[in-house]
Design a protein around this nucleic acid. Structure first.
Lengths: 206, 206
DNA sequence: GTCTATACTAGGATAGAC
DNA sequence: GTCTATCCTAGTATAGAC
């Protein structure tokens, strides 16, 4: 039975996400990962064969929550609803998967050298769907004539910043760690800014 | 005369900015910097003593444009004018100093391990001035009751994203490199979004 | 399946010729 | 002030005992 193996694999991936996120790929020593996971170094190699391979596993383990966030665009057509839910989902990812977000941001910043092409393509497909949806809102005059890509870039950047640049956030706000209330405030502020800024008129006003 | 020395120092800093930006500190080999600068590796050590020291020099060479961008907050009090100029200045930094921006982003993302404390403090001071200014606009009802910090985070993130995540931008837009017109569009879109989103009423309406 | 002890190599740094 | 040749450490990876 591979019960212990599964457990250890999980421990290692978890430890690796944290350390890769904190220091970046090249600056991470497998020794540190092993220590952090409470296992001998050789164990890491036994389960993952190489550092590069472990990193790939970490990146893949991290993709799913990121891809999930786009669901609002697939489930609804009301601009106010979709945008609000999307922003909320993206902020939740920053909050609940900060290591994943950082690893991913670092990956993108350096030209995505380890991102499997099929994942990149999935994200592109989501982007196409989202931006077509936004374009159709513009055409139907449900929102101001905004450029869909730039709107998406802004939403991505503004939501990810809470994970990626947490050092800056914490320094500016004077809080060591954002509370649930802080994340809620962030989501509300950003939602209001975007909805009002795009002149969103809801299909189902009430 | 240290003419050659100055020239070489300049060449090395330039090459180093590009490579540190592209790969991050740890993944950068001094050999690559030397090659890219067209000089022998020992030369790099002669001028900068160590890799860490060279990196510090790069970070410092990069600070100035970033600090300059905040001037609109010191020169004016009209929300529309200040915010528009600030956004434009930040986007210009992304456009004209993309390597600087990336090195800096990477530094912040990993907890600013190499950022001299006096620089960090200068940025904090700018942030205090900017957010007090925004708070005073709110108090005088020149803009909606927004949280100044969150507004700044959004502006920072949305403007820096054009440098930091250029890979993503170029993949989504299908353009290898953004043109001047693209940067102008980005600035306009974001300015409109922010001004309208914050309900900016200009002091000097016309 | 697990871990200790060790091999191998990349890359930061320097000595010393020019 | 410049560069070639070399040293040496740190860190990836593995052989082989348990």
């Amino acid at each position: 039975m591979a019960k212990i193996g599964d457990r250890n694999r999980e421990l290692i991936i978890q430890a690796a996400s944290e350390i890769f996120a904190a220091r970046g790929y090249a600056a991470t020593k497998t020794m540190d990962i092993a220590n952090h996971a409470g296992l001998p170094k050789a164990n890491v190699y036994y389960y993952f064969k190489s550092k590069k391979n472990l990193y790939r596993s970490v990146v893949e383990s991290v993709i799913d929550p990121l891809l999930q966030a786009a669901t609002p665009f697939y489930e609804n057509d009301d601009p106010a609803t979709v945008l609000e839910q999307y922003i909320r989902a993206k902020i939740r990812v920053s909050q609940q998967h900060p290591h994943a977000s950082k690893v991913f941001a670092s990956e993108i910043m350096h030209g995505a050298p380890h991102l499997p092409e099929d994942i990149a393509e999935q994200m592109m497909e989501q982007t196409r769907v989202s931006s077509n949806r936004i374009a159709s809102w513009v055409k139907r005059q449900l929102i101001d004539p905004v450029d869909p890509h730039h709107l998406l870039f802004t939403i991505w950047a503004a939501t990810q910043t809470y994970a990626d640049f947490d050092w800056q956030i914490s320094r500016v706000t004077g809080k060591d760690k954002m509370s649930q209330a802080d994340y809620d405030t962030a989501a509300e502020q950003l939602t209001r800014l975007i909805l009002k800024g795009c002149g969103v008129k809801s299909i189902q006003p009430e």
